[in-house]
């Protein structure tokens, strides 16, 4: 089955990390010391302020959790981190460039460097799982075949080999999350933002997704996971040095001490 025309995908070269797939190797230099800088950021919608006075700097290769009660603004915060929303006050600087200064094409370029996994991961239902995973390559103009070895390795890494030809509605919650994660990392992004990635899966699948995210972090990716699953955070802290942030009363706080 073909996703596009002929030709090979231009993936990064294979690395010696046995558990990794070549597609995930770090191949981009991050401009500046921070991948994301938020400076006195605020965001208002419909006359009400959802986020206020938020300042944060994410260094390359760091691991973060974002917690807070439902409706606190975690998803809004993540959207501000990949340019889906523009702050109403303050600055959001992504890869050294202020979001306000970017046009829509530049925002699109930024999104190729940020892998996003949503809780309600959306797919194109008329495409197969493999095609959906390869979608970022397709939209960036690369020809990619489902027979491509690198794509196969990525699908295998997520444990979806047997579901590669299925349509997204046929997948279980956990399979959808893993497919979304594979799609998020296929461009070898610098940052992975995951919004409640374990919200719809059982503990075993949560562990597996967490392992994949930790593995990506060890490859040099910056990871931020929005979750209210404290068990997941505790499990992660045994494997990776993670900073825990909390959004409460519209503001961002460091919340590691109570975990």
């Amino acid at each position: 089955m073909w996703i596009g025309g002929g030709g090979k995908v231009l993936f990064p070269p294979c690395a010696a990390i046995a558990s990794a797939v070549p597609i995930l190797q770090k191949d981009k230099a991050v401009a500046g010391a921070y991948v994301i800088e938020l400076d006195n950021l605020a965001y208002s919608y419909g006359g009400g302020e959802l986020l206020s006075d938020i300042s944060l700097r994410l260094t390359p290769g760091s691991f973060h959790f974002l917690t807070g009660p439902s409706g606190a603004g975690k998803t809004t915060f993540l959207k501000l981190c990949y340019g889906a929303l523009v702050p109403t006050a303050g600055h959001a600087v992504l890869f050294g460039k202020d979001v306000r200064q970017m046009d829509r094409d530049e925002i699109a370029e930024i999104r190729r460097r940020v892998g996003v996994v949503h809780q309600d991961c959306q797919f194109l239902d008329h495409l197969s799982v493999a095609e959906n995973i390869a979608l970022p390559l397709m939209v960036s103009g690369r020809d990619v075949s489902a027979e491509d070895q690198n794509l196969k390795e990525l699908i295998a890494w997520c444990g979806l080999t047997h579901r590669a030809e299925a349509r997204p509605p046929e997948l279980s919650g956990g399979e959808r999350q893993r497919a979304a994660l594979a799609r998020a990392v296929i461009m070898s992004p610098d940052i992975i933002l995951a919004d409640e990635p374990t919200g719809n899966v059982d503990w075993e699948m949560s562990e597996r997704l967490l392992s994949l995210l930790v593995e990506l972090n060890r490859m040099g990716k910056t990871v931020m996971i929005a979750t209210h699953d404290l068990g997941l955070i505790r499990a992660a802290k045994t494997r990776v040095q993670a900073r825990v942030l909390r959004i409460a009363k519209r503001r961002l706080q460091l919340a590691g001490a109570d975990l």
């Binding site: 889906a84 829509r104 094409d105 699109a108 370029e109 930024i110 999104r111 190729r112 996003v116 949503h118 959306q122 797919f123 194109l124 979608l135 970022p136 939209v139 960036s140 799609r183 461009m187």
Partner: peptide, 9 residues
């Protein structure tokens, strides 16, 4: 979805 994965307009 296309915008999420970096598609240009």
């Amino acid at each position: 979805v296309l915008r999420l994965v970096g598609a240009r307009d």
